[in-house]
Write a protein that binds this DNA or RNA. Structure first.
Lengths: 348, 348
DNA sequence: CTGAAAGCGCTTACAG
DNA sequence: CTGAAAGCGCTTACAG
């Protein structure tokens, strides 16, 4: 007599997950054939293919990644590496947007994202050891400052990687995806001038970051276009933080009280600048038109709502993942520059 | 004649990583002994131990995780799972704080964190398949709303997990770490009353989240303590978003114009409430004292700076990791409730 | 304390 | 198109 089928799985702990062996037995083929089906079903007869798929469904078989990874010498995983002091990035809304986009894009390939941070020397060592050991197939790198020590380490270990934003001082040796910072800045400054402003100041980002450099260059190029002489007293520098933007705007207001427009190199800094202007009794956009950069969520909650330059974060993350997977597959992929978009709200 | 030693590694690609076999050969012992050293060096003679360690250093040997994981049937990795619509969490500063803390805490154990999101049905299926296949050893769960379908799936698959915040409707079946929401709320409301306010209103969180329920309960309990009759018109509900807080405050101002204090169940909502009060021409804390909850970075940039209840995020993430690792190791760990701290700034 | 050996669950030439 | 077999790099009883 046969026992009644147990409800669910038996009481004993040892639920052994079905293996390729079990599938082969049920399907009545060899393990090699099962594996071939798993690899895409090439060189497998329709009958075998169907039998194997049925067995897989019946058993609820899922490949054991460790076994597969061991033999293929791949990890089928990718690291998302933050190389700045953690504080900075975790407060930056651009970061979470990017992280979310990369997670989603990798998810579609069924590739998990390992989040790693390398903020201090101890972490850096641990991460390099981990990555150099080949525990991931590639690295999505988030680092903006020149002279990042991690990049050298990763290059030496010949780990596929793609950076978000152009890594300064690498002379084209590392692939990257970036928004067109310079054109975006130019669009904004043209918009400011075309709306009738004549004393356009700017809060630039750090000059050891690509965004800091390029957005300032865009500002200067448009001044040239319109035959406006560049004036040192109309530029101040911030560190991309809200407080930094506020202080830079204070300095600008002191050095050039007559300014009637302000291009700020990030939304977070623009939010700070808005506070400074408010304190100084200047209305926006009445007295001073203000333009930001990023189109971060914060741009919608400032008052007035911020006119800004939209960075295409969704596409940036998608392209980063595409480039990295191509690189892992052995293809050489060119760097990608994505267009920005001027978003006009109330502040300018 | 011997060739001069090549600089760096040879030109040919095939840099094969050293294995336990190479280490054994260099150290003059068997692979088993090398493995024992790797496992902690028990039952290994001092001489062997030293020889093996020297060989490891010389070769730059790093264990192959795939091989190890295959035989130990462990993944030595942990998932950080977001089960809400992604938008919500990625905008919530509490989330990034928690993510950062967990990454750091796991990093100390050399365990990578896999970031996974289960916002829609398709993602949910993919994630359940991945987790149920045993691809991670455990799950750090971030989910606040009652009736989260993922929890059932994970429980069925018997995957170790610990939740951030008490999962409603699970009757104690899943371990969690949380701040003491009720006590935190009570501290704040007492502070409001003790500072001389008599019409204390509250913006509560969603009532299908533990923070929404508990913080409102704390508010009511303190009212009782002081013999103040509970007044329906002094409570409004928000969804933890900035806009939600602003709208809730608007409603409160309409229903109870005489309110002179406001306890808001999150800093983000408090920021919105501040905007509503400003629009209504009420000064803070002059006309209305405002208290928040979280002590998020935003609490420092509101004007006036926000008096709030600090959630101990660092400890929360550390405890989550500790509990999860214990659970993976087979130990049963009790749930952990951590004390909050009243942070007095300018708004109350 | 230590070595030889089995085995974890896959993939992939190799013959046929 | 398919099976038998080797091998990926480890860990872990088992003898000794």
């Amino acid at each position: 007599m046969t026992e009644p089928a147990p409800q669910g799985r038996p009481a004993g702990k040892p639920r052994r997950a079905p293996t390729i062996h079990d599938v082969a037995a049920v399907a009545g083929v060899s393990r090699g054939t099962v594996s071939r089906v798993l690899q895409g079903g090439h060189n497998v007869s329709p009958a075998s293919l169907e039998a194997v798929n049925a067995a897989i469904g019946k058993l609820g078989y899922v490949v054991n990644r460790h076994a597969r990874n061991l033999v293929t010498q791949r990890s089928n995983s990718v690291a998302f590496l933050l190389t700045e002091p953690q504080e900075r990035f975790f407060e930056d809304p651009n970061f979470t947007t990017l992280l979310r986009g990369c997670t989603a894009a990798l998810g579609e390939h069924d590739i998990p994202l390992l989040l790693m941070t390398a903020g201090d020397e101890a972490e850096r060592r641990r991460v390099v050891r981990y990555l150099a050991a080949g525990h991931v197939d590639g690295v999505l790198l988030v680092s903006s400052h020149r002279g990042n020590p991690m990049i050298e380490h990763l290059r030496e270990a010949e780990i596929p990687m793609v950076s978000c934003g152009k890594p300064l001082g690498q002379r084209g040796r590392v692939a990257y995806v970036a928004a067109d910072d310079r054109e975006g800045a130019k669009d904004m400054v043209r918009h400011l001038i075309e709306s009738g402003r004549s004393r356009v100041a700017t809060v630039a980002g750090p000059q050891d970051t690509p965004g800091g450099v390029e957005r300032l260059l865009g500002y200067r190029e448009v001044l040239d276009e319109y035959g406006i002489t560049f004036d040192e007293s109309l530029v101040a520098y911030g560190d991309y933080s809200r407080a930094g933007g506020e202080q830079a705007a204070d300095r600008l207001l002191a050095a050039a009280p007559g300014l009637d427009a302000l291009f700020v190199a990030s939304d977070l800094m623009a939010d700070g600048a808005l506070a400074a202007l408010d304190r100084a009794g200047r209305s926006v956009p009445g007295d001073v038109a203000v333009g930001g950069f990023d189109d971060s969520p914060a741009a919608l909650t400032t008052r007035p709502a911020l006119t800004t330059v939209r960075q295409p974060w969704d596409r940036i993350s998608q392209e980063m993942v595409r480039l990295l997977l191509a690189q892992i597959a052995g293809e050489t992929q060119p760097t990608v520059i994505l267009p920005t978009e001027l978003v006009i709200r109330e502040s300018a």
